[in-house]
Design a binder for these strands. Structure first.
Length: 714
DNA sequence: CTGGACAAGCTTTTT
DNA sequence: GCTTGTCCAG
């Protein structure tokens, strides 16, 4: 993170670190040493004020940030670090709930966590039972409504949800009921139920209020209502609430983050102090200038003026690629150049993108070029079928009333239990008001199924009870091995090398987990897995290029940064341009830019595969919002001209149908280079009409897209 | 009940 | 392009 390791803290930084107490808001610009302030503050509290580590709570938003903070704190205060409560909001709440949730009616402490896929499955089940067609109401839409309600602390009976579709509310109610029955919490519950706990059990709240004498929150601009509430509850007694944030980096509006939390801090805490950190220690003047100019386009923000004493540095490189493949190739060859001649190693380099799918082509090219890389944050690993299967087995073993997981593994590997049987068992469960697992037991006892089916179901039942018994006396690794052995799971994956390797990986993970903790229970393991997202973090110190989304890039920094997919409808993303959330997209790009210390590369593609179809695209409006003198512009056609010595051959360009319709409009063609008296040289993106009256959309480097009447072109 | 063939929907972003 | 769901023959 941004730091001035050689120098001492500057005045404002000192002021923040040595803040005497009470509410403090640190408005910290990108690269002004935010994380450093928090870690230094923690070490200051421990060393100078003799605050016991267990009386400190530090909260972040991503696992990555939490790990980074743990690492840094342990550097400053070696032995104390492990007793400080450092974690994400979700992991902190999980820790509290695992100790206290049984004090709330209807909850028990051995609950398991449902991820978003489990959530969707359960919602679909509920919709089926309520006879609500998926055509009528998409399960994803329902989920986002439920998530939003929980982020705002609203249960299914809340009167504040009256404006919602009645069907959504019916689903929400049933969904909650089923979660309770399965003894499961979803991600939203971790926060929402914690708030409920604090509201309903003042004595529990009091314990934590007493414990947490000092609370520090990173990225405060990203807190949503329940998170805000948790912090507010916990800090009520000691009032030592120390929050750090930057409204320009608020990028979680879609998750209910409310920028008002940071803007209203002074109102919420009347004795609040505010410290601004405006000196940037991270980036070159060029990069900072570009970021400042970009963010000026946003109306909704605190005024801040970031400055730096760092060198001017190189221009920002912008490459407009022929297509997404060309983009990937260009990025990788630049990486080659930077590591060969630029004096950088792979680990100094990061590639950011808007959506996870964009990583695929880049990965292929990196692989092809033999450049080592790692992907951060991709939950991919845990979403793999084989991993979800194994985890489902473990979840059922830990908690047999987990219906979603039980149904998942019921017939995996195939053991002759199909839809008809499941329906019958469902019926029994509902009639007798018992769990699905108990329904199986009952069906066996009372012989409620046909004989041939009973044999199969009994085999499953015996398998599960055996596994449960086994889990009580052995460690997690042997339990997984036992599951694999008893179910013959690996036989099913005979020709699937990669999947078998993934199974190996989950075994490694379990072994690792067992080593770290002395009395690791199966439940602990499942919890950690549920909240974990980046497996590749394990190989932290190797010399690899880092790939991640712009969202997970927040809080990090790299000497060399590539941002790809700089196109309209991708950044800003299509969905945001429709809903007037362009400012948040701009902040996202701002976050990306300000991660770069020395070199910044931007790239876009003229066409790209989307949903398996080629789509034409135009460069992002954000490109034209950067100061044009700071940009070194390059284009695949220009590089082509350079290579071939000026004779651009149109025959080398693949021509699609879409393109043809553009090209048939006369003198001007898409992709043609033209010049304009005030904008200079540019490339034609679109032609409407024909002849001199044709309207031509041209991209001018430094100016962006301009629609121009053809006769005004030179 | 199983497995293969085919269709449909899908992509923001994270815990 | 990939994953999930649906339909039908065996």
């Amino acid at each position: 993170m941004a730091s001035n390791p050689k120098n001492d803290l500057n005045d404002s930084q000192q002021e923040a670190v040595k803040h005497p107490g009470g509410p403090l808001l640190v408005l910290a610009g990108a690269g002004s040493g935010k994380t450093r302030i928090i870690t230094e503050r923690i070490s200051y509290l421990i060393k100078e004020h003799h605050v016991s580590p267990s009386n400190i709570l530090a909260v972040t938003f991503t696992n990555k940030a939490a790990n980074e903070m743990k690492k840094r704190v342990s550097r400053l205060a070696q032995n104390e670090a492990k007793n400080i409560w450092i974690g994400t909001f979700h992991s902190t709440c999980l820790r509290i709930l695992k100790r206290e949730i049984n004090k709330l009616d209807g909850y028990s402490r051995d609950f398991i966590i449902y991820d978003d896929a489990d959530q969707i499955k359960l919602i679909k089940d509920c919709m089926g039972r309520l006879n609500i067609g998926e055509r009528l109401l998409s399960p994803k839409h329902v989920r986002s409504q439920i998530d939003r309600a929980k982020n705002n602390g609203l249960g299914p009976d809340s009167s504040e949800l009256n404006h919602l579709d009645k069907n959504v509310l019916r689903i929400y109610s049933l969904y909650e009921q089923e979660l309770r029955k399965s003894n499961a919490l979803d991600f939203g519950d971790l926060l929402h139920v914690t708030v409920k706990l604090f509201e309903k059990k003042p004595e529990v709240l009091q314990n934590y209020q007493n414990q947490f004498q000092h609370i520090l929150v990173d990225e405060y601009q990203d807190t949503n209502y329940v998170q805000y509430k948790i912090v507010e509850f916990l800090s009520r007694k000691h009032r030592n609430i120390f929050v750090v944030g930057d409204d320009n980096q608020s990028i979680y509006g879609w998750r209910g983050a409310d920028i008002k939390n940071i803007l209203n801090f002074e109102k919420d805490y009347s004795d609040a102090q505010i410290i601004k950190l405006e000196r940037n220690y991270r980036s070159t003047k060029t990069i900072l200038k570009a970021a400042n100019k970009l963010i000026l386009q946003n109306k909704n923000r605190h005024d801040k003026n970031l400055w730096t004493k760092n060198a001017t540095g190189d221009q920002i490189n912008y490459y407009e690629a022929r297509d997404d493949k060309d983009e990937a190739k260009h990025v990788c060859s630049q990486i080659g150049i930077e590591t060969k001649n630029g004096g950088y190693s792979n680990k100094d380099i990061a590639i950011f993108f808007r959506t996870n799918t964009q990583s695929r082509l880049i990965e292929e090219e990196l692989l092809h070029k033999g450049i080592p890389y790692k992907i951060v944050g991709g939950t991919e690993f845990y979403k793999r079928t084989e991993i979800k299967d194994i985890l489902a087995f473990l979840k059922v073993i830990a908690n047999p009333c987990d219906e979603i997981s039980l149904k998942r593994i019921l017939n995996v590997p195939p053991r002759g239990i199909g839809k008809v049987t499941v329906n019958k068992l469902d019926e029994i469960a509902r009639e007798k008001e018992i769990s699905f697992f108990e329904a199986i037991k009952l069906a066996l006892e009372k012989k409620l199924l046909s004989n041939s089916v009973l044999i199969k179901v009994e085999r499953l039942y015996n398998l599960l009870t055996q596994l449960i018994e086994f889990s009580e006396k052995d460690d997690i690794v042997s339990l997984i091995n036992h599951v694999l052995h008893k179910t013959k799971y690996l036989d099913m994956l005979e020709n699937e090398e990669e999947r078998r390797e993934n199974i190996g990986e989950i075994l490694n993970l379990a072994a690792e987990f067992g080593k770290e903790r002395d009395h690791a229970t199966l439940n602990d393991f499942l919890d950690s897995v549920s909240l974990a997202s980046d497996l590749d973090n394990l190989r932290e110190n190797s010399d690899q290029v880092t790939l991640m989304t712009l969202h997970s890039a927040k809080g990090l920094e790299f000497p060399v940064v590539f941002i790809v997919g700089m196109e309209e409808n991708l950044l800003p993303h299509f969905n945001s341009t429709m809903n007037g959330q362009v400012e948040e997209e701009r902040r996202l790009f701002y976050v990306g830019i300000t991660r770069a210390k020395e070199k910044l590369y931007l790239a876009s593609a003229t066409k790209r595969m989307i949903f398996g179809k080629q789509q034409w695209s135009i460069p992002s409006r954000f490109i034209s919002e950067l100061p044009k003198e700071l940009i070194k512009w390059e284009n695949f056609e220009y590089s082509l001209i350079k290579e071939t010595g000026g004779s651009k051959k149109s025959s080398t360009k693949p021509i699609s149908k879409t393109r043809q319709t553009y090209e048939n409009s006369g003198r001007y063609k898409v992709g043609q280079k033209v010049a304009h008296s005030s904008f200079g040289e540019g490339l034609i993106k679109k032609v409407e009409g024909s002849g001199d009256k044709a309207k031509v959309t041209v991209f001018f480097p430094g100016y962006g897209l301009k629609k121009i009447i053809a006769s005004y072109l030179e």
